[in-house]
């Protein structure tokens, strides 16, 4: 059994290992100017002012055994990212994830700066709203929606001219939740810490000029919007592993 402090320590150690790896290679000759850009979505570097960048892909999230017991459900969500540079270091982020019966729209602001020619940092905050509705004869007459906030910190490292690694840590805050079955509804509008997540994403070329994001996200949280219809009642951080794949357009 791992206690929470041990897991937090481990997360920190992983982050530190990534930074150390970056720092260890940081003494090499610069191979690229810091303000040069590869096609990227996760990498903590702002688009040039006025420039748009976008990606389209899929996210696979696996259900924790506490919720679906012997069954493992991994329904893909379509994942669309849109970003716009506001200044040299500041940019807007937008993200839509959808499984059609449930969707999540996020808007955020991020500030990014190079720490060296290889190492980059960003801090930001994303606000997301999610909505789900299920109407299935004799099974569901349910809807739910909510608001969550994700303060985040990303470290990016250019491993070589084509390959970029991003490590992102996020806090997950619940701000609002409303659930309705038939004519009954419950609301929870207390702000509370829901959990945290750590992502590791590689961005690289993929056949010719196409670039992709490929990574995973480990979320430890009480609630995950994709599984609102499972009506999780646990006040425990459950593990939601996610695999991320997206084409940078």
């Amino acid at each position: 059994m791992h206690s929470k402090p041990i897991r937090l320590w481990l997360s920190g150690a992983l982050l530190a290992a990534s930074v150390s790896l970056a720092a260890a290679q940081g003494g090499r000759q610069p191979f690229q100017q810091p303000d040069e850009r590869q096609p990227e979505i996760y990498f903590p570097q702002a688009p040039r002012p006025g420039e748009w960048r976008k990606s389209l892909g899929l996210i696979f999230t696996t259900t924790p055994p506490e919720l679906t017991e012997e069954v493992r459900v991994s329904v893909p969500a379509v994942d669309f990212n849109l970003q716009k540079g506001l200044s040299k270091k500041l940019f807007l982020t937008g993200r839509l994830q959808t499984q059609f019966v449930q969707s999540n729209l996020g808007l955020g602001l991020r500030w990014a700066t190079p720490l060296s020619d290889r190492l980059f940092l960003s801090v930001g905050d994303d606000m997301t709203g999610w909505f789900g509705a299920l109407l299935i004869k004799d099974v569901f007459n349910s809807q739910a929606y909510g608001l969550q906030n994700f303060p985040n910190l990303s470290l990016g490292y250019r491993l070589n001219r084509d390959l970029q690694l991003t490590v992102r840590g996020e806090g997950i805050l619940d701000m609002y939740y409303r659930s309705k079955v038939g004519t009954l509804a419950v609301v929870d509008n207390k702000w509370q810490v829901n959990g945290f997540a750590v992502s590791f994403v590689l961005e690289q070329p993929f056949y010719g000029n196409q670039h992709v994001s490929l990574g995973f996200r480990a979320a430890y949280s009480n609630f995950n919007w994709q599984f609102w219809s499972l009506y999780d009642t646990f006040d425990r951080n459950l593990f939601y592993p996610q695999v991320i794949f997206g084409f940078i357009l």
């Binding site: 059994m1 791992h2 481990l10 924790p64 690694l165 590791f200 593990f239 592993p241």
Partner: peptide
């Protein structure tokens, strides 16, 4: 490295 990290995280599912 990323595969290793993934395995580490998978192994960190907390047992309550």
């Amino acid at each position: 490295l990323i595969s290793f990290l993934f395995l580490v995280f998978l192994g960190c599912r907390k047992q309550y």
